[in-house]
Design a protein around this nucleic acid. Structure first.
Lengths: 342, 342
DNA sequence: CCACGCTGGTTTATCGATACACCGGAGCCC
DNA sequence: GGGCTCCGGTGTATCGATAAACCAGCGTGG
């Protein structure tokens, strides 16, 4: 049995409350008793039980990032950014997995779990607005990275349409005429659909036709899916001279597929990704990609969350905070998978 | 204020205990009362407070993986594997960050936090045995991925020496004579040192000299460090025709550096990594790398942890479990960054 | 001389859920 | 008919820490 605070109290000959005070420093304690308590703590190898503190205090100083999957580099990088910011205020970040796009989605990570944290950053990739609508909870929640979710929630989104438009427009401007949209989808309302919209819009603006045969959906395994997309284009003889991959991970797979097919990048086929992962700069050739403003998104997300956690210092209760939608600034990062602008 | 269980009880006209029983299904409850309770739950939007349950039950059904950093793909993949296994037994995985190799190391993630979980999988990359020795806790802990830690703990390790030896031996067997060890170190006892040992051993076995000038340390940013290592070799005119990079991430940086320097892979320089990340197969050319037996490691880690969590069904108390050290099987995965064996 | 404030502590109630003991009645076996 | 289990419940103590109220002793100023 681990030692409890009252064990320490008994050993030190003081009350539990005094032990608590020594440990938290919340009240002054005489130097003598202080030392006795600390000695007892050391002696018994006592460790604070945070669970009990949480129950009593109703606060955990911990934020959770709920990502669709653990093994997706994008969320790893996001978590790192968030964690760094939270450390400044003495808080912690933990990451949980929702197992996106499966039946159980949020169910798997039962609603009750969210109560274990002061706030929730919920990535809603692969969830429908309906899924989110069902999410009735009193825990502060900020949604990340999607579009058109119920406006009951704060949301931090990428500018998906504009990012996709930028990427595609650049491909068209540098000479590509048949740009595949890898990871795209012609229906639904999720990220895949919205970026497909941007792809289409770029074509319109350039006065060029967008061929739906070039929209290739992706599945669960981005890397393999990217490669498979290229294989399929080649196999079916669909001509293409550019690829807009909807994530950098897909793009990595696409590059592998192109190499396999003996197609040169960027000479035969240009490629643009989306996310600007750390690794993308180091691919060979370096991946041209859309940078979704990582830092701004992290800043916004935490600002919105803090607004909900802190019961608004000025306003009284009942003053519901008006949900906000923020969109990060996108920009195109030019590297070796595209040709220089003419 | 969120509704509590006793609110529900009052609304349904039953005792709290009955509500609890309905919700957990731990005892039989009449169909009528059951329905009344569920109606009340729905009505009040009641959500179970897991914190309270944890305090009472002394169990959280949650395991934590403590990784040095969130944005390291290796741990993302590991987390995914662990999570999948834990789901089978109805448990959860959460990931926390230790911020390895900083002052605070585990301090940052205060010992008390570990008590929030039923068990801890602690990656000790970048920690010294002393750091770990200081780790006095009653929570079940299994150490991951290192060597020569205090044998008070269970440990699941990669066969670092053998993996490094394999990698280097293959480079030597396929014609490389000057093999750089990127991420290596000629002192200490951590992973970097041990893999350097394997690198050295392969040279000995082949009767070839191992030049310490080819051992290049890495810092915090593996990708950039890998590239920088190549830049440095080129800048300083150190001749080399092979690279053993101590992680696949470093290898990715190395490949970028080689491309930048106009060196062809594998014709001018062969490259081998370590980790067999998902992405490594999709680099161009595909990265030859050491596979550390991911699945076996995950299996072992959880087996050892469960052994500690479950107070050994057979033996009585006081029967201390003998700490175990398991080493995963390593194997070499051959891809395009090395030449075919002669 | 007494009210007053400070210091260093103790006592008590509480956070929300759950283990456990227990209850009256019904059914059943030997 | 005594002893047993099963049924659908209820009351109470408890998990460990902490906020808030309270208290004894002492110095001080008016």
């Amino acid at each position: 049995m681990p030692a409890t605070m009252s064990d320490v109290a008994r050993a030190a000959g003081v009350s539990v409350m005094t032990v608590s005070n020594v440990l938290t420093g919340r009240k002054r304690v005489g130097e003598n008793t202080r030392r006795r308590v600390l000695a007892a703590v050391d002696d018994l190898g006592y460790e604070l039980n945070l669970t009990a503190r949480h129950l009593r205090a109703g606060r955990t100083d911990t934020i959770v990032l709920v990502a669709p999957r653990f093994d997706h580099p994008y969320f790893g990088e996001l978590a790192a950014r968030l964690s760094k910011r939270l450390e400044r205020t003495g808080r912690h970040l933990v990451v949980e997995q929702s197992g996106a796009s499966r039946e159980g989605e949020l169910e798997a990570l039962s609603l009750a779990r969210l109560h274990l944290y002061d706030g929730v950053l919920l990535s809603v990739v692969g969830m429908t607005p309906d899924d989110v609508e069902r999410l009735r909870t009193t825990v502060p929640v900020v949604l990340l990275g999607e579009q058109d979710m119920p406006d009951r929630f704060d949301q931090v989104r990428m500018d998906n349409v504009e990012g996709a438009r930028l990427a595609t427009a650049h491909l068209l401007a540098t000479g590509s005429r048949r740009v595949a949209a890898v990871g795209g989808s012609t229906s639904g309302r999720g990220m895949t659909f919205v970026r497909t919209l941007g792809w289409r819009r770029a074509h319109e603006e350039a006065g060029l036709p967008a061929d739906d045969a070039l929209v290739l959906p992706a599945g669960q395994s981005d890397l393999a899916d990217g490669r498979e997309a290229v294989r399929r284009l080649v196999r079916e003889g669909t001509s293409f001279d550019g690829v807009f991959a909807f994530t950098d991970t897909l793009a990595t797979g696409v590059l592998a597929g192109l190499a396999e097919a003996g197609l040169r990048v960027p000479d035969d086929v240009q490629v643009v990704g989306f996310d600007n992962l750390d690794a993308s700069e180091f691919l060979v050739p370096g991946l041209t990609t859309v940078d979704p403003g990582h830092d701004e998104m992290a800043d916004h997300a935490l600002r919105l969350l803090d607004r909900l956690i802190d019961p608004s210092p000025g306003a009284g209760a009942g003053t519901a905070v008006e949900p906000e939608r923020v969109t990060g600034p996108v920009s195109l990062v030019l590297r070796g998978t595209t040709r220089p602008a003419p």
